[in-house]
Design a protein around this nucleic acid. Structure first.
Lengths: 160, 160
DNA sequence: GCCAAATGGTTGCAACAGGAACCATTTTGT
DNA sequence: ACAAAATGGTTCCTGTTGCAACCATTTGGC
């Protein structure tokens, strides 16, 4: 019976971290085992499969990941023949990324698995609880952004 | 207006990850800026300050961190004179860790800051919503453990 | 009491993540 | 039209993390 009275375990950021890491590890494990994909790669595939051809910049916006992470994920998907780049005639610096047939096939396998995992994980919650939970997460996000604006840790932070 | 219809943004594990990372980064930034502590170090300090002398093994249980992470955090705290080890006469392999006076002083500064950050972050939630949120996190945790038991990714997992 | 197994802790190593610096191209200001 | 700034993408480097192997001590079986 560890840590009866420790306040750490009451600290909400800590609880969020513990739960989220548990979920992430579980999900990451399944994706790695079944498809050899890491989370960043999976996220890019999910977005590409559902939005069509995008630039890396678009992917940064859609996945909330660092542009370096996006770049690496894209390169990996390309190397494995799951995505392909075509030149962007409107801007010579970037390319359009799109799933190949192989990529689309994998995407078609991947999304149902995601749905079923989500179902299994959150089957302990009612539909209403799930909605509320999501809404709370969104509000927390908002609040973080607001606080960051007030106390800029790392320079005013342009939206690069 | 990025990613209108992308299902990734509806995926609950993704939303948890985004929100939690936002919170963690904010918290980590403040602790680093004010005290030069990283999250693992902060967690160890929080537990030691509130539970007294513990072994590293105890800390692993109380913080849910890897034993290597705990070890490194302890070493850092020791090097900075915030914690000290005393021999454990009941077991020659381990030591008791305890905050030094300097460590206690820092702990006394740290905890109010933690409380105030928690307050600021979650001021957008009512007390009831906070309770519900915590309860949901706990239930999700439970569910993850249950699923892990059913599909052991990485060997039956002894409780080391 | 002794050997084997288990346990607490430590170290080494390899994977990962994120920031800063960088190149190529495009946009802006004049 | 040109120089300066900005932008998309890429590479390099650094710090962090987590696992596996390891040492020392303790525990359990005989």
């Amino acid at each position: 019976m560890p840590s009866r009275s420790s306040r750490l375990s009451d600290f909400l950021p800590y609880q969020m971290s513990v739960s989220t890491n548990a979920v992430s590890d579980l999900v990451a494990g399944k994706y790695r085992a079944r498809f050899g994909l890491k989370i960043p790669e999976w996220r890019v595939m999910a977005v590409l499969g559902d939005a069509g051809a995008l630039t890396q910049r678009d992917l940064v916006g859609a996945t909330r990941m660092d542009k370096v992470a996006v770049n690496r994920a894209c390169k990996m998907l390309e190397d494995r023949g799951l995505a392909a780049r075509s030149p962007n005639d409107r801007d010579g610096r970037s390319h359009h990324l799109e799933l190949t047939p192989a990529g689309k096939a994998m995407h078609a396998e991947i999304m149902p698995l995601a749905l079923s995992m989500e179902q299994q994980l959150f089957s302990v919650l009612t539909a209403q609880e799930r909605r509320d939970f999501k809404a709370v997460l969104a509000r927390i996000n908002e609040q973080v952004r607001k606080l960051e604006r007030l106390a800029p840790q790392h320079a005013p932070e342009r939206d690069n």
